[in-house]
C-alpha cells in the first residue's frame, strides 16, 4: 500500500491548555474540525501514522541539533509539559520500530536523516494526537524538522524530505497516514503572542491546497521572520506534507485566527486518489 491519508493541523499548546480562556465558538468550531479530521483519518484505515512535527526543545538541543529526525522506538511517552498546563494527561503512545526502520532506511536514500529510539512527545505531537487518536491505539512514527534553533534546513530540503517520506511509504505494504503539524504565522511564547498575520496565512494555505511547489518554496527565512514571526519557520512541516502528496491538491477545512490559542487554527487534508 502507500499513503492512505495526509493532512496538516495546528499544534499550539493553547488549543488544549487555554481552552477555557477562548471564545466558546472559536474553541467548539475548531474542535469540531479536528474531530472531522479524525473521522477522515479513521475512515482511511491506517496501520500507522507518521507525524511530522516541529518540536520545541523537548528532545533536541543546540548541543547536537538534527535538521531531520525519525523515531524508531517501541513506544513513546508524552506530553513532556505539565499535564495541567497543557490540558492533556501523560500517556504511553505505541510505536512501530520495524516499520520505522524501513521508512528511515528508505528516506536515507535521499536525505541524511537522524533517527532516535527515545522520544518524549511535546505539544507539537501531543496536541494533534489528543484529537486524532484519543485512545492512543494507532502506532506512531514521530518525525522532527528543526524549526526552532537556527541555522534551519532550507525549505527546498523540507520538500525533498517530504518526497523521500512519500517514496518510503510507497515501498511498504502497510497503510500509512501522514500529518504535518505546526503553525503558519505566529509569535508563540513572546510578548507578541496572539499576533496572527491572517493575510499571510491565507496566501500560504492557498499555495498549499494548490500544491504549488514553486510558490511554497518562494520564501526566505528573513521574510518569514518579518511577516510571520519565528513561529512561521514551522511551515517546513506543511511543505514536507505537500511534497509527500506527490502533486495531489488539498482541501482547507478550517482556518480561523484564534489569538488566545496564539495561532491561526488550521485543518486541511490532501485529496489523495486511493484504491479501496
Amino acid at each position: 500500500m502507500s499513503l492512505v491519508f495526509a493532512g496538516i493541523c495546528s499544534h499550539a499548546p493553547g488549543i488544549t491548555g487555554r481552552k477555557k480562556m477562548a471564545d466558546p465558538d472559536d474553541a467548539t468550531s475548531f474542535y469540531n474540525a479536528y474531530h472531522q479530521m479524525r473521522d477522515a483519518l479513521e475512515a482511511s484505515k491506517p496501520d500507522a501514522m507518521i507525524v511530522i512535527a516541529a518540536e520545541h526543545f523537548a528532545n533536541f538541543f543546540m548541543n547536537n541539533m538534527p535538521a531531520y529526525c525519525i523515531g524508531m522506538a517501541d513506544s513513546y511517552s508524552g506530553p513532556i509539559e505539565d499535564p495541567e498546563w497543557l490540558g492533556i494527561q501523560r500517556t504511553t503512545i505505541p510505536g512501530t520500530p520495524q516499520l520505522s526502520r524501513h521508512i528511515i532506511q528508505s528516506v536515507l536514500q535521499q536525505v541524511d536523516t537522524a533517527y532516535a529510539e527515545e522520544w518524549l512527545f511535546d505539544h507539537g505531537i501531543s496536541v494533534p494526537l489528543h484529537f486524532l487518536t484519543p485512545r492512543y491505539d494507532l502506532p506512531i512514527i514521530p518525525v522532527n524538522i528543526n524549526c526552532q534553533g537556527p541555522p534551519l534546513t532550507p525549505l527546498h530540503r523540507s520538500w525533498a524530505f517530504g518526497a523521500a517520506v512519500r517514496q518510503a511509504c510507497d515501498s511498504v505494504p502497510q497503510r500509512v497516514a501522514l500529518i504535518g503539524t505546526g503553525g503558519i504565522s505566529h509569535w508563540p511564547a513572546t510578548p507578541d503572542s496572539g499576533k496572527i498575520n491572517e493575510q499571510w496565512d491565507r496566501d500560504f494555505l492557498e499555495r498549499w491546497v494548490n500544491n504549488d511547489r514553486e510558490r511554497l518554496l518562494d520564501y526566505s527565512d528573513e521574510h518569514i521572520y518579518h511577516d510571520a514571526g519565528q513561529g512561521g519557520f514551522e511551515i517546513r512541516t506543511f511543505i514536507a506534507v505537500a511534497a509527500a502528496m506527490k502533486g495531489a491538491k488539498g482541501t482547507l477545512h478550517y482556518y480561523r485566527p484564534i489569538p488566545i490559542f496564539a495561532v491561526g487554527c488550521t485543518i486541511a487534508t490532501a485529496n489523495l486518489a486511493i484504491e479501496a
Binding site: H56, F57, E81, D82, W85, Q148, G149, P188, A189, T190, S193
Partner: peptide
C-alpha cells in the same frame, strides 16, 4: 527562546 522560557515560567 520562548519555547524554553514558557515552561520555566509555568514551573
Amino acid at each position: 527562546n520562548g519555547q524554553i522560557l514558557m515552561h520555566f515560567a509555568a514551573m
